[in-house]
Design a protein around this nucleic acid. Sequence first.
RNA 1: GUGAGUGUAGCUCAACUGGCAGAGCAUCUGACUGUGGCUCAGAGGGUCGCGGGUUCAACCCCCGUCACUCACCCCA
Length: 416
Amino acid sequence: MQFRSLKGIQDILPPESYVWQKIEETSRETFKKYGYHEIRLPIIESTELFTRSIGETSDIVEKEMYTFNDKGDRSVTLRPEGTASLVRAYVEHHLYNEPSPQKYYYIGPMFRYERPQAGRFRQFHQIGAEVLGSEDPSLDAEIVSMLNAILRRLGIDGFDIEITSIGCKTCRPDFKTELKKSLADRLGLFCEDCNRRFDLNPLRTLDCKVPSCIEARKGSPAIIDFLCGECSRHMNGLKHGLSLLNIPFVINPNMVRGLDYYTRTAFEVTQGSPGSQKAIAAGGRYDGLVAEFGGPPIPGIGFAIGAERIVPLIKESLTVRESPDLFFCTLGKEASEKSFVLTSQLREKGLWVEMNYDTSSLKSQMRKADRLGAKNVIVLGEDELKNGRATIKNMKDKNEIAVAFDAGDILKAISK
RNA sequence: GUGAGUGUAGCUCAACUGGCAGAGCAUCUGACUGUGGCUCAGAGGGUCGCGGGUUCAACCCCCGUCACUCACCCCA
């Protein structure tokens, strides 16, 4: 019986795993400078946590969740995103009693039951950051700037930071009716999907990629023109903040969020040709979510980077693997045991040491050492055992030095 | 959920559109009784995704099925 990983769920093998380590390290270092602390959240939660926050009619909830009943007949779900869990933990542990704002980050797998595609998987990984406890737009600017910093430090460029505001409880409904009024008389020009969207969620017609729809919606009202005073001031505050920090951005008034809890600021980092999966990170403000989860009316903002979407963009994708400092070639059982012990001692001293395990010709052992890229090789055979000295060969310059069977001597010899 | 494409060695791909399943790379061995890379020689490795059908004969044609890939919807 041959097993395969499940559809859309993949192994991350070396050397690519080193690219992942680099992404995680760079993110952690950057988060630290901005005062974000790691929070480790469960990957499984009660189903209702997601249906309530993400929205009953969102695509994620309607068709993309890994939901099942546990043995206690409770409906549970593998998390499709991180914000809901974070806010749950924030409220559950009364973290609003800590000084505001509270800044958190998380790194981990998310699950969505979708048809896999380039840059889209059923298990994928997000690097997310969330701030709770302030609605100051300078925080919006700061978090966008932090996202920018992480991507830059990873050597990624050629991306756009798109921002917009999607309004709040007061102004969004007004805009929705205005938009419907504007679209109503030319519905025939739009595609089938847009006609469906017109009833369900008219805002989505603004995001349609069908060329005829792009043409047809020209001149439609844009949400940023309908923002209430508060939202408008907030949006300007964000733009001002980004300008102060010299973060280039573009305003995309057609941006739409797939999750219901977003308010005001929404942003997206896009890269590459227009089409699918150009978003490598996305985020926004969710000022009503904490209260929705039974906490005080505390605002929040966050983003998530799609790890799978930046891996291919990282220039160091072809990271050269590090190589062992020393490889022991052995001939005979006694030599093998001797190097077994020396190998262990040298590792204690901090070296990366490999040895030959199976009996094979010296030639093939040398070949193996070479394939591993070993910097030095020690040959231990009958002659060496007789003399009590072995030779270390530097694989690069081919020099050989005689050493005693002593971890200290060997260490000294190869650190020259 | 919808549509299209592709499944042959560990990897990348051939096989005259029906006639004995191949190459390159990789692996292992040898040339060189105990010294790697280069070169040369050889070896191992296949239920041609799976099941059925047509045929004297199927990797090739037909039907079904599964998997993978890409795209749509949507999203990180």
